[in-house]
Amino acid sequence: MLRFFRSVATARKLLPLLLLATACQPEKPATTEAAAPQHLRDDLGRELTVPARPRRIMSLAASMTEMLYAVADTATIVARTQVCDYPAAALRKPVINSYPLDIERLVALKPEVVFTTEGITSLTDAQRLQELGIPVYYQRYTKVEDVFRGLNDLGRILGRQPQARHLTDSLRAELGRIASATPPTASKPRVLAITWSDPIYVYGQNTLFTDKIALAGGQNAVVEKFAQPYPALTREYILKLNPDIIIGGTFGKMDSTFFRLYPELKRIRAYQTRRIYRVTDDLMSRPNPRVVEGVRELQQVVSGS
């Protein structure tokens, strides 16, 4: 247990240092001002044109705001949304409501490009913004590696490649250390991650969680691929899955809420062996530069220490 706290503490310490390192890079002189605009294709295959060196940027997703703070010159970030709460420095930026999108306020801040994540911003909103001359760049992550690639893409678009490279290199190294610390056991515990209890929604096979839990030495209990990333499951389906571990809250909390609502599910192995855990919400749900920290937390859950 002590080891867990210590490793989380180091990871927590590590990231601000990295951010500081990236933020301290001297700005290049403005010789690239006249450079040709960039013609880009985002992760959804949408084509857009972005100024050579955008000086006014923003994000419409909490995870993307974290990505920008890790890579961009933070002075160029002109706003945040009501849900963006990390890093603390983001809280000082003006707030734009993202749902429903406050288009007028957004336009008034004149961002040159808006970054967001698939599934967070509707394509209709993106279309509206494009019509108003503000390009919207989507990223999509299905593997942890996609988050690293996303950081590097942002670095390239924002002219901050060295910073992004530096960050992803250290994140990859950190991930490598976690992998080498994972004992090569034959049986990988099957982990069911619950996001909502009524109806029961879980992390499906096509979410980032599947890759994260695999890197942490476990496997997503939901093997079947559903159309939705977070499918609704029946009690019967979960009984049949019979997961080894459940993520969704502390044992006491889940016992008094989830298992009170669905007492039949007390038969499953995770309940019988009390392997029911709470993890940090933002590390679990946001594809952000803290993804490695999230993997480390999952590793603690899987190894049961």
């Binding site: 909502w196 109806p199 009690r235």
Partner: peptide, 17 residues
Amino acid sequence: EEKLRTITFWALGGFDK
């Protein structure tokens, strides 16, 4: 999003509980 989904699905009816 979860709350919205819960409200919407409740309004469509079901016997899952």
